[in-house]
Design a protein around this nucleic acid. Structure first.
Length: 489
RNA sequence: GAUAUUGUAGCUCAAUGGUAGAGCAAAGACUUGUUAAGUCUGAAGUUGUAGGUUCGAAUCCUUCCAAUAUCGCCA
C-alpha cells in the first residue's frame, strides 16, 4: 500500500497520479505551483512529481476577480475540482476547478526579477538562483533523474550481493594521495594552541590529531571488502583542488565498490555492467524527463554550427552505451594508436606523443573516445610511476593493474585498480613515495591477516548524471555546487 | 593555478568615437477553450568597477571584480 494511503498523510493527489487516473467525474484536491495562467482560465499546475503539468480550468466568470488576480506564476495553490476529459488537444484530462485557494502568493513584480518569470533563461542565470532553479522544467528533470539514478545504484549493488559500507566523512589519514584536503578543526581559529616551533598543536584538537574531510572511502572500503566480501560506498567526497572546469566539484558524490577475490578483469566487467544497468534504469524509468532533456538538446543544437551538433539523440546515445561493449585497450596499445594518429603526425596535439610512459592528456583521451573508437573506452595496465601507491604491480615490473573508463564528452568517469595485496611490495612502494607506515598501519594489517586479491573503482556520480542528462557543466547536475569561491546556499 | 572571451533594461541581444534601441518578461485595458494564448497602451538604463585619453566614450587604454570556455589536477 502506498505510503500516502497507509498513513493518510497527504489528503491530496499528486499530479503524476492524477494524469494517469481514469477516475473521470470524480473530485480531487491537487496542490502545487502555478507554471502559467492562460486566458484567465487555464492554470498549468506543477507539483514536481513529474515534468508534466495538470491543466486546471477556472470558471473565471463566476470567480472573485481579486482571487483571479492572485493566480500568478510561481504562486502555490490548492485546487479542488472534478477530473474531466479535456476539450483541448494538449492533454487527456484536466481539472474543472470548484475551489481554488492561494497557499502562498508570488508578487509578479518580484517574480519578474527571478528565473521564475516564464521565459527561457541561460544556465548561468539559473545557477545564480540555484534555490529556485528546481522549479524549472530543466532542473526538475535533472534532479528527478539524479534521484532515480541514485536509487538504481543502490538497487544494482543490492541485487548483486554487495553490502553498503558507510565509510567515514571525517578522516584521520592524510595519506590517500587523491588530492588536496579540507582540514576540519574545532580549535579557536583566532588563537589556536601552538607547539614550541610555532606550528598549530593539533594534539589539543577535538580528535587529538589533524583531521580532514575524506577524499575517498577506498582504503576503508578495502578493509570492509576483506570481511564482507563485496561492498560499496556511495557518499560525499571533498577535494580542495583549485579546479575550475565544467567537470570538477569540490564536493561531489562518489560510488566506490570494492570486491575481494576479484582481479582487474572482474573489476572491468563489474564497472561496465554497473554503468549499463544504471543507464538502462534511467531509460526505462525516466522517459518523460529524458524526452524533455533530449528535445532541449535538439533546440540548443539548432543555434550551433553544423559541425558542433550532436550526431545522436540523447536517448539513442544512452541506448548505444547499454547495447555495445566498451572497448578495452591497454595503455601500451593506446600509446601506439596515438603515436600513429593523424593529429600526432600532423603535430595537432598540444602534447605530442613520442614515447611510452607519458601521461595521457585530455586531448589524447578525447581522441581515443570521440574520434578513434567512438564508444566508451576502458584503458588498463598503466605505467606504475603515473599511478597511486596501492595499485597491483604487474609481473613486468613497470605497469600496474589500473583501469580508467573514458566516456565521450566527459572524459574519465571511472578510475579503478586491482589493489596490491602483497605486503612486501606495498611497503616498498610506500617507502619509495615517502608514505609513512604509521599513518596506514590499519591498512597494512589487511595485507598481514589473510590478504587476498581484490579490486575496486571510484565512479563520480555527477559525471554519470552529466552523461545521462546530456548536460555539459557538472555544476548543473548537483543541487548546490561547491567549487572555488562558491559555497552560497 | 594558467590562457582566452564576455560584461548594455528583469532576461536575450543591437548600437562606425557623435541623440542608448529591439524582442521577450512584467504592469494596465480588451479578448476568452488556451497550450511559451492573442490585440492595444504606457513604463522600464549611473552601459560591471575605479581611473585615463578625447570637444565628445557603451565603443579606445589601464586597474580591479565577475561570468563562461579550454588546459592542468582528477572522479
Amino acid at each position: 500500500m502506498p505510503f500516502d494511503k497507509k498513513f493518510k498523510i497527504m489528503k491530496h493527489i499528486s499530479v503524476i497520479d492524477l494524469l494517469a487516473s481514469t477516475a473521470i467525474h470524480q473530485e480531487f484536491t491537487v496542490k502545487g505551483w502555478v507554471r502559467s495562467f492562460r486566458a484567465n482560465q487555464f492554470v498549468a499546475l506543477n507539483d514536481g512529481s513529474t515534468i508534466k503539468n495538470i491543466q486546471c480550468v477556472v470558471d473565471f466568470e463566476n470567480t472573485d476577480p481579486a482571487l483571479l488576480k492572485r493566480i500568478t506564476v510561481g504562486a502555490a495553490v490548492s485546487i479542488t475540482g472534478m477530473l474531466e476529459e479535456s476539450q483541448g488537444a494538449g492533454q487527456r484530462v484536466e481539472i474543472k476547478v470548484k475551489t481554488i485557494e492561494i497557499a502562498g502568493d508570488a508578487d509578479p513584480e518580484e517574480v519578474k526579477l527571478t528565473i521564475l518569470s516564464p521565459k527561457r533563461h541561460s544556465l548561468e542565470k539559473l545557477r545564480e538562483q540555484a534555490h529556485l532553479r528546481v522549479r524549472t522544467n530543466t532542473f526538475g528533470a535533472i534532479m528527478r533523474l539524479r534521484s532515480k539514478l541514485a536509487f538504481a545504484v543502490h538497487e544494482y549493488f543490492n541485487k548483486n550481493g554487495f553490502y553498503h559500507a558507510h565509510t567515514p566523512i571525517i578522516t584521520g589519514s592524510d595519506a590517500e594521495g587523491a588530492g588536496e584536503m579540507f582540514r576540519i578543526s574545532a580549535l579557536d581559529p583566532e588563537n589556536p594552541p601552538k607547539n614550541e616551533d610555532g606550528s598549530i598543536d593539533y594534539s589539543q584538537d577535538f580528535f587529538d590529531k589533524e583531521t580532514n574531510l575524506t577524499v575517498s572511502g577506498q582504503l576503508e572500503a578495502e578493509t570492509y571488502a576483506l570481511g564482507l566480501g563485496k561492498v560499496y560506498t556511495f557518499g560525499p567526497t571533498f577535494r580542495a583542488e583549485n579546479s575550475n572546469t565544467s567537470r570538477h566539484l569540490a564536493e561531489f558524490w562518489m560510488i566506490e565498490p570494492e570486491v575481494a577475490f576479484c582481479d582487474l578483469d572482474g573489476n572491468m566487467d563489474l564497472a561496465e555492467d554497473f554503468i549499463k544497468y544504471v543507464i538502462n534504469y534511467a531509460l526505462e524509468n525516466c522517459q518523460d524527463d529524458l524526452e524533455f532533456l533530449e528535445n532541449r538538446l535538439v533546440q540548443e543544437d539548432k543555434s550551433k554550427p553544423q559541425a558542433e551538433r550532436a550526431t545522436m539523440l540523447l536517448r539513442d546515445k544512452l541506448k548505444f552505451v547499454v547495447e555495445n561493449n566498451f572497448k578495452r585497450v591497454s595503455y601500451t596499445e593506446a600509446i601506439d594508436i596515438l603515436r600513429n594518429s593523424k593529429p600526432n603526425k600532423k603535430k595537432k596535439f598540444k602534447f605530442p606523443i613520442d614515447q611510452w610512459g607519458a601521461d595521457l592528456q585530455s586531448e589524447h583521451e578525447r581522441y581515443l573516445v570521440e574520434k578513434h573508437f567512438e564508444c566508451p573506452v576502458i584503458l588498463f595496465d598503466y605505467p606504475a610511476n603515473i599511478k597511486a601507491f596501492y595499485m597491483r604491480l604487474n609481473e613486468d615490473g613497470k605497469t600496474v593493474r589500473a583501469m580508467d573508463i573514458l566516456f565521450p564528452g566527459i572524459g574519465e568517469i571511472v578510475g579503478g585498480s586491482q589493489r596490491e595485496e602483497r605486503l612486501d611490495v606495498l611497503k616498498d612502494k610506500m617507502a619509495e613515495l615517502d608514505i609513512p607506515e604509521e599513518e596506514l598501519w590499519w591498512y597494512l594489517d589487511t595485507r598481514k591477516f589473510g590478504t587476498c586479491i581484490h579490486s575496486g573503482f571510484g565512479l563520480g556520480f555527477e559525471r554519470l548524471v552529466l552523461f545521462a542528462t546530456g548536460m555539459t557543466n557538472i555544476r548543473d547536475v548537483i543541487p548546490y555546487p561547491r567549487f572555488p569561491g562558491h559555497a552560497e546556499f
